[in-house]
């Protein structure tokens, strides 16, 4: 970590750990005290036609993008080399997958955003958290596109795998090498920093519905019966923490 300025340590070491902590603790807090607010908060009841085009596109695109990021950042270069995957093969997969993901995400989110702006009912139902979330997502996505197009397709090329990816993995092994990210082009630095903001905000937005993917539905019986259970019901005021009621 020698040679890094104090603000670089702050931005690329302190902030990631704060963001990850907020991410974990935020989810626990939300699940414990705001299960009633834990929902996809769909606006399909206001407007269905465009949502039925945009929402599946966006979600599929996001899945691809998450897989791409996992492949690019979490898988070390040494592993793909050991598997005998050449640089050109790797970038072919990355560019093809990335292009499909970008088209799906941008068109999907574009439809969803336009619909949110243009349909008065959806616009009126847009919460403060949405007003924060939508622009943030756009910024992160556009920056990600810009760095790939700007540096790798049109520019000289920048290999994030031995640099940013090393730093990122280092965060999880508690040995982040800040030089990996401080030497990266500025667009990358902004992209990853906004991504930490996104991660910190995640548990406090509607995005938590991602963790509720109902896979259990595949194996459970269709009709659910419940019998009155003999466990005590928590009484407000007697439990620790606080109870949120009437939350929008």
């Amino acid at each position: 970590m020698s040679g890094a300025a104090w603000w670089q340590i702050f931005v690329f070491v302190a902030i990631p750990y704060v963001a990850l902590s907020v991410f974990v603790v935020g989810h626990i807090w939300r699940y414990r005290f705001d299960r009633f607010g834990w929902t996809s908060h769909s606006s399909q009841i206001y407007e269905s036609r465009w949502l039925r085009v945009g929402a599946p596109m966006f979600h599929l695109g996001v899945f691809l993008a998450i897989m791409g990021h996992a492949l690019g950042i979490l898988v070390p270069e040494s592993l793909t080399e050991w598997l005998g995957i050449s640089e050109s093969e790797y970038s072919l997969v990355a560019v093809t997958g990335g292009t499909i993901a970008v088209v799906l995400v941008v068109v999907g989110l574009g439809i969803l955003s336009l619909r949110r702006l243009a349909d008065p009912r959806v616009r009126n139902a847009t919460s403060d958290s949405d007003k924060f979330l939508f622009p943030l997502m756009w910024l992160v996505i556009l920056l990600g596109m810009a760095e790939t197009v700007g540096y790798n397709l049109l520019g000289p090329g920048y290999n994030y795998r031995p640099t940013i990816a090393e730093w990122y993995r280092g965060i999880f092994t508690f040995s982040p090498d800040v030089s990996g990210v401080t030497t990266a082009p500025i667009l990358y630095q902004v992209h990853v920093s906004l991504a930490w903001l996104f991660i910190a905000a995640f548990p406090f937005t509607r995005l938590v519905h991602a963790w509720s993917a109902p896979v259990w539905y595949l194996t459970r019986p269709y009709v659910i019966y419940r019998r009155r259970r003999s466990t005590p019901v928590p009484v407000p005021g007697e439990t620790r923490g606080w109870v949120t009621i009437g939350r929008r």
């Binding site: 509720s212 109902p214 259990w216 539905y217 459970r220 269709y222 009709v223 659910i224 019966y225 419940r226 019998r227 009155r228």
Partner: peptide, 18 residues
């Protein structure tokens, strides 16, 4: 034989046995 209960992916709807 409630189809709403059967359709709920989250298992949030239920029928009381009592």
């Amino acid at each position: 034989n409630p189809s709403c209960v059967a359709s709920c992916p989250s298992g949030a709807l239920y029928k009381r046995e009592e």
